[in-house]
Design a protein around this nucleic acid. Structure first.
Lengths: 230, 230
DNA sequence: ATACTGAGTTTAGTATGCAATAGCCACTCT
DNA sequence: AGAGTGGCTATTGCATACTAAACTCAGTAT
């Protein structure tokens, strides 16, 4: 209602993306893909030069990275890539399970047939990746599916919180995690069915089990790795 | 292990608090207590002058306020105090309920007798405030109690997420919420008992009910206010 | 040889300045 | 008179410059 006076302005056109955003994205990527290792000291001037910007946008991005949990900011010492501990990981997993369970419930309440169709598409993408044995694609498809379920819950707060948690989990597990196999995608299928038939309780319960399985799966891998190297 | 060479350094001594932190605290306070109203345009230069600092720390604080959900940052237009919608509030409440329920469970698993004693103290503070009819003190005591339960869950992720959600809820309800009365504190007492006896399941269930009651209570108030003024 | 002390260097913290963009208002033309 | 257009101002975005704190390492005294 607020505008649209005369023109049929298609979308608010392209706002020039602030540099800080680009820097934030770039650094996140560098951290996730391991170019910047946990514990590493991030020197502002260095980053600024590498990215070809001044220190100002860097600093602003670092603030955001800090609140998002990617880096630790020690006063007068600067930014360090966050080193997750085993406990923290377990905590992240448990909280993520909680949030995703809730979002499955919401999705079952709000999803339209069209939404469900999209879910099946994503599921299919995952199955294809699984068949091809492309680990990277599997992880990606999995994330896409879960993200979309969150979206369907029509809960902006969840949609804001889950990625915060989820990306950190995935980052930590990247080096050690083989994706779960066929089981996970069977569970996905059942969850989608529950969402499709609008059964919040069933969707919730199925998602609870699914996330629990995933958590257990990861915890075992942690234990294995911890036993070997630490 | 890293340091403590000779001295018996008590704590990492006092790092000089960065200005951005002070600014962040100040602005949060101003938003929460209503000096800065929802939708209001926050002009950097203005804030800088009022707080007696330059624009730089202001900008950094605004980044954090943004990710914490206090302000909206529109590119090239600046910062605006976030205007929560009714839906968003309902969502915040439901998520908060979820997280607090989980934290009660954790608290029951980890609390020591000493921790429980502290909970009873906080409970007593609340009862005193209730008897005195001091609304502000009641809200504060309530927050303190819930915060401490979260702490006891020994889950850093929860401890990080809940305040994010909780403070926003409290901020929004501040103007319309009369604190709930004796009921809430009776429920608190039962929850503390469950924690004391180390019954995760019972604590979880009691907290679930408690937060549900609170949510319902607030939703009614929203409806009432919405009916009147909007 | 080892522990302490001091200067020098690095780096974060803060302030200021300049360029670019968006919003606003007065003016003009129909 | 109303709509459209131009210039003006306010404000953000970015960069640079300066200050102060922390770390490093060499030198010295025990």
């Amino acid at each position: 209602m607020p505008d649209a006076p005369t023109a049929a302005a298609r979308g608010p056109i392209s706002r020039p993306t602030p540099l800080r955003q680009a820097v934030y994205d770039a650094l996140t990527k560098l951290i996730v893909n391991g170019s910047l290792k946990p514990g590493q000291h991030l020197v502002e001037a260095e980053l600024a030069e590498n990215l070809g910007v001044s220190r100002q946008p860097i600093r602003e991005a670092l603030q955001r990275l800090h609140t998002a949990g990617w880096v630790d900011l020690r006063p007068s010492q600067g930014a360090f890539v966050h080193s997750p501990t085993t406990e923290e990981c377990a905590q992240l997993l448990s909280v993520r399970a909680l949030l995703e369970t809730h979002s499955a419930r919401g999705a079952a309440q709000h999803a339209t047939p069209r939404d469900v169709a999209r879910l099946w598409e994503l599921q299919q993408t995952g199955l294809t990746a699984l068949a091809a044995g492309d680990a990277r694609a599997i992880v990606e498809a999995n994330a896409a599916l879960h993200t979309h379920i969150t979206l369907l819950s029509r809960n902006a707060v969840l949609a804001e919180l889950i990625p915060q948690v989820d990306r950190r989990v995935r980052w930590y597990y990247m080096p050690i995690a083989k994706p779960r196999g066929k089981d996970a995608w069977n569970e996905h299928a059942r969850i989608i069915e529950a969402i499709a038939e609008g059964s919040p309780h069933r969707a919730e319960e199925l998602m609870r089990r699914h996330t629990r399985s995933t958590t257990d799966f990861y915890c075992k891998q942690i234990a294995a790795v911890a036993g070997q190297s630490v």
